[in-house]
């Protein structure tokens, strides 16, 4: 499932729209307060969704979901299995290109293993996209520009996990209308509904997109589309609505529970000591 990870267009930012992050928490040593970055908050939110005993696959360029998996393993899900790029099993080190051998995996597979895993399915797959629409369809192939030209994306290695994994967890590192669009130009992986047809009508047996995490909002699948469950970080709901390519309710959803001191301590001290998820001026 390599290459399913962070779309190049999503970049590394994410805090621009939401200010400087969520609540201030004290670390466990009582040292200086740690203000979570948007990416750290997203990793915490994703980690809380991962269950003990699951097999969780992430793409090659998936530092944030890898961190979420490692955080879950170190907190509430010690028997979670994390597959980086399908090949590197249970990484012990978060590195810039998550699916590299320098992630110090417990074990290593090859593409025959990935092929078989894909066919038999895993519990959850994490995907990103340069476009994601209200139904959770995602696009990593191409986008038509207003001037008529076509922007070519990086493509996606593995589409089959979209219907063989138990559920799909989506993330984007920027909450922008050019990414969160009403309808994708190309469905690299099909979401909850495509061209008016539900997953059941398309013959897709699994849940599909269960949630979408952005730097501002955690969406969940509800009534066949992605609906906001909670907001996180400093936010202005009217700006969130304006930055989303489909209609959101006027009323802001409730805020997410801030990352706890324990979560932040483990995230920064154990999972991400290099500070890859922190804001660049806070490393």
């Amino acid at each position: 499932m390599t290459g399913t990870g962070g779309a190049a267009m999503t970049g590394t930012g994410g805090a621009a729209m939401t200010g400087t992050g969520g609540g201030v928490v004290a670390d466990e040593l009582g040292a200086s307060p740690a203000r979570p970055s948007a990416r750290e908050r997203m990793a915490v939110l994703l980690s809380r969704e991962l269950r003990d005993g699951w097999t969780f696959a992430v793409g090659a360029r998936s530092t944030l979901p890898t961190a979420a998996g490692m955080l879950a393993q170190a907190t509430h899900a010690p028997s979670l299995t994390v597959l980086c790029g399908g090949i590197y099993v249970n990484p012990r080190r978060l590195v810039p290109f998550a699916a590299g051998y320098d992630c110090h995996p417990d074990s290593v597979g090859d593409f025959i293993d990935v092929y078989q895993l894909t066919e038999r399915g895993v519990d959850a797959i994490c995907y990103s996209g340069m476009q994601i629409d209200r139904f959770g369809n995602l696009n990593l192939h191409w986008v038509d520009r207003p001037d008529g030209s076509r922007f070519r994306g990086p493509g996606i290695a593995n589409t089959s996990f979209g219907h063989t994994a138990g559920r799909t967890l989506l993330w984007v590192e920027r909450h922008e209308p050019r990414i969160l669009v009403p309808e994708v130009d190309f469905a690299s992986v099909v979401g909850l509904r495509r061209r008016g047809r539900t997953r059941a009508e398309l013959g897709l047996p699994n849940l599909g997109p269960a949630l979408l995490v952005t730097p501002s909002v955690l969406f969940e699948a509800r009534d066949g589309e992605l609906a906001p469950r909670v907001v996180h970080g400093d936010h202005d709901w009217s700006r969130v609505r304006a930055a989303t390519g489909w209609e959101l309710p006027e009323q802001s959803p409730p805020p997410a529970t801030d990352p706890t001191a324990h979560e932040m301590s483990v995230l920064r001290g154990v999972v991400d000591p290099m500070g890859l998820l922190r804001d660049r001026d806070d490393r």
Binding site: T2, G3, A8, M9, A60, R61, P96, F97, L140, G153, P154, G155, I156, A157, N158
Partner: peptide, 13 residues
């Protein structure tokens, strides 16, 4: 005929 081409953490190819 390659599913994904990028420069990893260095961005688009």
């Amino acid at each position: 005929r390659i599913p994904h081409v990028s420069l990893g953490d260095a961005g688009l190819a």
